[in-house]
Structure formats: C-alpha cells, structure tokens
Computed example of a mutant assay.
Amino acid sequence: MKIFQIKKSIASLIILSILSCSSVKTATVSGKVSAIQKGKDGYTATIENTKGRIYFGTISIPNLSNPQLFKQVEIGDTITVKGELWKMGKEKQITVREILELKQKNIAEAKITGTVQSVEKGKDGYTAKIKTNEGAIYFAVISIPNLGTPGKFREFKTGEKVTLFGEIWKMGDDNRITVRKILD
C-alpha cells in the first residue's frame, strides 16, 4: 500500500511539472508603463499594450540575461521586453529576460560637438566634461550599458574633439547628456 502511494505521488509530480512547463512560453511585450511596484531585486512594471491588454513585467537584475543591461523605468515610459509569459489567476505575467527597447517620456535628445575638458572615472564608464563649440558645458555620461555593446565604447582624453548623441537632462544647474552614440 505504501509503495503504491509513493508511485502515485511521483506520477502526480511528473504530470504537474509537465503541465506547469507547458503553460510557460517565451514572448515579447510592448507598451506603456502605467504603474511600478518596487521589489527586493528590481521592480514590477505594469505594461499596457496598444490593445489595452495589461501585463505585469518582473524586471530584476538576477532575471536578466545580461544584468548590466538593467534599466529603471518611470510611469509613462514605453518599453519592449522579452521573457517567459505566464498567468497568475487572470493576470498575465512576464518574467523579463531582456529589455529590448526603452523610450523615456519627455526626454530631449540632441547631438553635441565640443572638446573634452576633463574625465572622471566611474563604476561602468566615465563622465567627460565637454565644452561645446558654442561655449556651453555638458557632463557626458559614457558607459557600455548606455551605449548597448562594448564595441561602441571608447575612452576620450582631455583636449580631444568629440561628437555625441543622447538624452539631455539637468542635475542642479549642470547640463548632462546620457550618451547613446559616439558619432566621430
């Protein structure tokens, strides 16, 4: 009798694991972030696609295929993610393995050309102080995660002429640019 119960339990576990594995599939989800719930290793973004479907995307460093590509999103951003799609009750969940695209709301993009005044090393790259041809000062954040791949990364030296493209923003009174492309 005891052996029969053990065999029955093992058979049940095998069937359950087959069924649970078959309900998980890889998918790509795109949409606008309508809410963010902070978590231990990251956050869950509520993503609403153009058809009004809601997905709950768990975005955390341990879940990403490349942890260096972790990005923080804000409400109103548009995001495209890839990962395992599954359901919890009626809610559609996606365990995000890759952030394919992130378009931040109200971020101005621009190209600047100027001369490197100084370079300060950072954790993932460096910040270069750039004086543009018009005399404006920008602090350019240059890193592999922001550029997308190591092949696009380049270190500048003081006095070097550069042309950069990225998002312009302010920190206090300082002009900043998160560099997405090195153009020269």
Rank of each mutant, 00 (worst) to 15 (best):
S118G: 10
I54C: 06
A110F: 12
K92S: 02
S30M: 05
I137Y: 11
T95Y: 01
K170V: 12
K105M: 07
Q72D: 13
S34D: 09
V96S: 06
L100W: 04
K38D: 14
I61G: 08
N106Q: 11
K40V: 10
E84R: 07
I182M: 10
E120T: 13
D41A: 06
I137K: 04
R180C: 08
A11G: 13
K32H: 04
K161Y: 08
K111A: 09
K170R: 13
M88I: 10
Q5G: 04
L100F: 05
L102G: 05
Q68V: 02
T28Y: 02
A128K: 01
A11N: 15
R53N: 13
G159L: 05
K51H: 02
Q68M: 09
V73E: 13
C21I: 14
I54E: 14
I168R: 08
T127N: 01
G159N: 10
I142G: 14
I107Q: 15
K129L: 01
E160L: 01
L102D: 04
N146H: 09
I18K: 15
M171V: 14
T44D: 01
K25L: 06
D41R: 07
L69K: 01
Q37K: 11
I142C: 14
L183Y: 06
S17Y: 10
M88H: 07
I182G: 03
K152D: 03
D173P: 05
Q37T: 12
R97F: 10
T163W: 00
T50C: 03
G57W: 03
I47N: 08
S60N: 12
S20K: 14
T44W: 05
A140P: 13
I112V: 13
D124G: 04
Y126D: 00
V96R: 03
D124E: 07
F56N: 03
F70Q: 04
